[in-house]
Simulated scan of single mutants.
Amino acid sequence: MDWLQIVLLSIIQGLTEFLPVSSSAHLILVPVLTGWPDQGLAFDVALHIGSLTAVVLYFRHELLVMIASWYRSLTRQGTDADARLAWWVILATIPVCLVGLAFKDSIESVMRSPLVLAGGLIVFGILLGLVDWRCRGRRNEYAMSWKDALWIGLAQALALIPGTSRSGITMTAALMLGLNREAAARFSFLLSIPVIVLAGGLETLELIRSSQPVDWLALSVGAVLSGISAYTCIHFFLAFIKRIGMQPFVIYRLILGVALIWLFG
């Protein structure tokens, strides 16, 4: 890869990992428009490490409190709101793990076409727009029940369909359940941590088994740029989500979906 490819892919991955616009659609579209070769598995791992570092750093205070409270709940010292939130993150991660392990090969071989991506962008984009317009509530993430977490987790499993967007579908489900925009976004970002760890872990195992050469400088730059763009994205998204809502992202998804149909239809 040349340096322009490294920089552009890193920034795009960092931004789209957390915005409700589907990172997979962008990472497929960019090489098509530029003629660049596939970036390779090692670079994907580096980008995941950057995104993971960003979300952990951003929520470091909340995570420390949640982990401490979760540990106390294990030792029967009581369960408070932070412990419950930690349990809900774990519960909501189970469905996507089970579905991903069961259908990983089918998803990668059958559903990676640009037209499937376009369909996911358009259909789930419209759903996000309707829910954001009609179903917003006032609850925050600490007011969730285990049933809420399970429903959001089941929705997250749909993100295995390319074009759906993991953050987009989890925010859609959270809004449908009566969470406010900020709470829906925060819980979606917290959910990304175990998902990125698991996805990055699987990619790392595949990388270890392969004989692919590693360009450590390119990987390091990619991880740093992905982390910086992801951190910036989280900060501004949470700062402005209450005011701007989801509609700009819905419009963008529709335009991108139509562009994919136009290019590949």
Rank of each mutant, 00 (worst) to 15 (best):
W262E: 10
L64S: 15
I90S: 04
L98M: 12
A184G: 12
A155P: 10
W88E: 14
T170N: 00
R84E: 08
L154W: 01
G119L: 01
I94L: 13
H48K: 12
I122C: 00
R60I: 13
L175E: 03
A54Y: 09
L254P: 04
I228K: 02
I126D: 04
H235Y: 15
W3T: 10
L9F: 15
A239S: 13
I67F: 15
G200W: 06
L8S: 12
G125N: 03
S226F: 11
A239W: 10
M1Y: 13
Q13F: 07
I255R: 00
L217Q: 13
A199H: 09
G120H: 01
V32E: 15
M246L: 14
P20V: 03
S210E: 01
V116E: 04
A81L: 10
W87V: 11
Y252E: 05
G200K: 08
V96F: 05
F18R: 11
L207Q: 00
A259P: 06
A185M: 06
A46P: 04
G78I: 01
L115F: 07
P20D: 09
L260V: 02
S106F: 14
A46M: 05
R166D: 11
C233T: 15
L101A: 14
L260Y: 02
I244F: 13
L130T: 07
V65T: 15
M171C: 02
L198I: 15
I169A: 00
S10T: 02
L160W: 14
L158W: 04
W151R: 13
A118M: 03
A174I: 02
G129C: 08
W87C: 06
W262Y: 14
E203H: 14
I169K: 00
A83L: 02
D80I: 04
S165E: 10
D132N: 12
G200R: 05
D215I: 09
F240G: 07
A83R: 03
E62H: 12
V45I: 04
L238D: 00
F18P: 07
G14P: 12
T170K: 00
S106A: 13
L177S: 10
Q156D: 06
V224D: 08
V214D: 03
I261T: 11
W3L: 15
A42G: 14
L177F: 07
L121N: 08
W70A: 06
A68I: 12
F187P: 07
T75M: 13
I11E: 09
S106P: 02
C97E: 09
R209Y: 08
G153L: 09
A185D: 11
I196M: 11
Q212R: 10
F264A: 05
M66Q: 11
Q77P: 06
I228P: 08
G100A: 08
D38Y: 11
K242D: 15
Y58H: 10
G14R: 09
A68F: 13
A173Y: 02
S23Q: 02
F124C: 04
I196Y: 07
F240W: 14
G227V: 14
A25F: 11
R76T: 00
W87R: 14
P95G: 09
L4V: 14
M171R: 07
